[in-house]
Design a protein around this nucleic acid. Structure first.
Ligand SMILES: [Mn+2]
Ligand SMILES: [Mn+2]
Ligand SMILES: [Zn+2]
Ligand SMILES: [Zn+2]
Lengths: 140, 140
DNA sequence: AAACTAGTTGCAAAGAGTTGCACAAACCAT
DNA sequence: ATGGTTTGTGCAACTCTTTGCAACTAGTTT
């Protein structure tokens, strides 16, 4: 796993410290197959290190987002979900009626991204978006 | 104002009741010039009717959203903002570095909307979106 | 006008996420 | 190794929003 090494160096390069808590949180995120929540990460880490606090999980996720190592998305469940950035970018269409989720390739938003960059010089962060609306069935 | 009448009928048609609380909350939203928050609506209504509860405000906003009478947006302040749907749709580019907000016309997302409809038969709700990223200055 | 019924409200408690602060620990320099 | 500097952590309190429940009331029927 030279991924871990990348992360370690990315942290120390920028003056962040490599703490046991951060390493455990990172491996919890990598071990999760799919989108994880802060609570799930907390539970997994707490199994081995009960002293950990949930606010440390939130603060670490904040940091990993800033470093571009995890992406976050709100699928409308009342809680945010995360996954490793290196597992490929994609988006989700979420039906507000029946809850169906359609997965979308990153490319669907690439023309929007470049339009915003050209017209507004705005560099939009369009990784891992959730777009709400109605699926075919629920559109009546 | 036959707008009010529209709302009254929109409520009763679907079996919802027209309560004093709902009327006060509605007029509080209409009286606000710009994006309002639940707390601001609550404060305004409570000035005349101190018995009102903030959860009623949240529930009413939920209902008005469902009826398409207000739109909601999260500008990243840790609280959601609302405004009347009939005040025109638009979007916002929010710089996560400096907080600058650029207003966007509705049309910027219309080609995305039709692409999602064609390719996925998904009717996306793209009213009043906030797109995060970095403005020119903060893009270095 | 009185009763009925289903939607609505207030209240209290809970959930998700954030923040200030004092103490702890990682990293760097000696 | 030792000490100092600065970042990070645990904890508790707090903010925003949601939810279960019992009491209430708008709109309808008799
Ligand atoms: Mn995803
Ligand atoms: Mn707006
Ligand atoms: Zn659906
Ligand atoms: Zn900026």
């Amino acid at each position: 796993m030279n991924q871990s090494r990348d992360i370690v160096s990315k942290l120390s390069e920028r003056g962040y410290r490599l703490t046991p808590q951060r390493m455990m949180i990172l491996s919890a995120i990598k071990n999760s197959n799919d989108h994880t929540s802060a609570e799930e990460i907390y539970t997994q880490v707490a199994a081995k290190y009960p002293h950990i606090n949930i606010s440390t999980v939130y603060r670490t996720l904040e940091l990993l987002k800033k470093l571009g190592l995890v992406t976050e998305t709100n699928l409308g469940e009342g809680r945010v979900r995360y996954h490793p950035a290196d597992k490929g970018h994609h988006h989700h269409l979420v039906c507000q009626e029946c809850g169906t989720i359609i997965d979308l390739d990153e490319s669907v938003l690439s023309s929007l991204k470049s339009a915003l960059l050209q017209e507004y010089k705005f560099s939009a962060d369009l990784r891992h978006l959730a777009i709400f609306g109605r699926c075919v069935k629920c559109s009546k």
